[in-house]
């Protein structure tokens, strides 16, 4: 159920596009939905971040794994246990660009009645492969949105198609992302513990991304669409001046690609995908470990309201006297 429900949803979404194309709803699928999805994405993202920012983080709670700054003759691990802003920035950069904490992933096994820990790098490798190829693919798509494509983008594209296999040139990231998404899915299916904790909300983005990648791959290498038309549409969209005439010339599979992407964008702020913003706001990562150096003051109850004995006696003096309890002041 947790697997089939999201799978069926994605299939319905794809069928919806074909039905929409049949019914000539090009403007809806090509213009209205993409704009709406982008708006939901941007506003939803900002809303989520502001909501997070409204929770105070009173104490520094980094989860560290290195020697803390201490006596001068004990060597501090400046990155794993940072005490300065620079250390935090390096630690965050390693986390964001290289998934440092996932690199430490361990596998626990019972062997001959003993618990043994082994290194487990597959998730890290697949996660890294997935995210980096996703980023490269995203950046590559910028060529559809600019008149004069800068050399950087052409270089990225050139490196990605460096093997010069086939025409149109085969992109390595296309294969990498397909393999990585497949691995990330099979992992949830085959490892019993992971399967147990996986929810529909874990499978849905996987299926959605798989659908987006697959439709893109099919469109580039197999069922060709009017690519110049795609760029004319994209340029029209970013110029707020889309050309309605081009919409019907492009080809259905492009709309599948675009619609699934729109769904992903609209779904993004309300899902676990928000870890894009969340990683920067993780208090266990983005704080320095200086709890012993700096006094951290709890923002929500400072100055601490204390009720002294004198005040207490003032409140209850009459009652205390009635009950025969001695008081300090008459």
């Amino acid at each position: 159920m947790k697997i089939f429900f999201p799978l069926v949803i994605v299939m319905i979404l794809v069928l919806l596009v074909f039905a929409g194309i049949k019914a000539n709803l090009y403007f809806l699928f090509g213009v209205v939905i993409p704009y709406a999805a982008l708006a939901v994405f941007v506003l939803g993202f900002i809303y989520r971040v502001l909501k997070w920012a409204s929770s105070p983080v009173p104490f520094h709670i980094p989860t560290t794994c290195g020697q803390e700054k201490t006596l001068p003759w004990i060597k501090q691990n400046k990155i794993e246990n940072p005490s300065s802003a620079l250390g935090v920035i390096i630690r965050m950069a390693l986390e964001v660009f290289a998934f440092r904490s996932l690199f430490r992933n361990l596998k626990t096994e019972l062997r001959d009645g003993k618990i043994v820990y082994g290194s487990e790098k597959w998730l890290w490798a697949a996660g890294l492969a997935f995210h980096w190829s996703f980023l490269i693919i995203l950046v590559r798509h910028l060529r559809f949105f600019m008149e004069n494509v800068p050399v950087v983008l052409k270089t990225i594209e050139g490196l990605d198609s460096f093997l010069q296999i086939g025409v149109p040139l085969f992109y390595m990231t296309d294969a990498v992302i397909l393999a990585a998404v497949t691995y990330l899915f099979l992992r949830r299916l085959y490892l019993p513990q992971i399967k147990y904790i996986s929810l529909a909300a874990d499978y849905f983005p996987l299926f959605l991304i798989f659908g987006i990648v697959l439709s893109g791959v099919l469109m580039r290498y197999f069922f060709k669409v009017h690519i110049v038309g795609v760029k004319i549409l994209a340029m029209g969209l970013v110029g707020f001046n889309p050309d309605p005439k081009i919409l019907s010339e492009i080809g259905a599979i492009f709309y599948v690609h675009l619609f699934l992407l729109s769904i992903l964008f609209a779904y993004f702020p309300f899902s676990k995908l928000m870890h894009l913003g969340g990683v920067f706001l993780s208090p266990t990562r983005n704080l320095s470990n200086n709890s012993r150096e700096v006094r951290h003051i709890n923002p929500w109850n400072y100055p601490v309201h204390v009720h002294t004995y004198e005040e207490y006696e003032n409140d209850f003096r009459d009652k205390m006297k009635k009950a025969g309890i001695p008081v300090e002041k008459e």
């Binding site: 982008l38 941007v42 409204s54 910028l142 110029g239 913003g277």
Partner: peptide, 26 residues
């Protein structure tokens, strides 16, 4: 809002990246 300066700075970077195709074509 806590850490307003950093949050707003981060959100501005986010907006600048997401809306790049739009203002780039003005």
């Amino acid at each position: 809002m806590y850490n307003a300066g950093k949050i707003i700075f981060g959100l501005l970077i986010f907006l600048a990246l997401v809306t790049f195709p739009f203002y780039n074509n003005i």
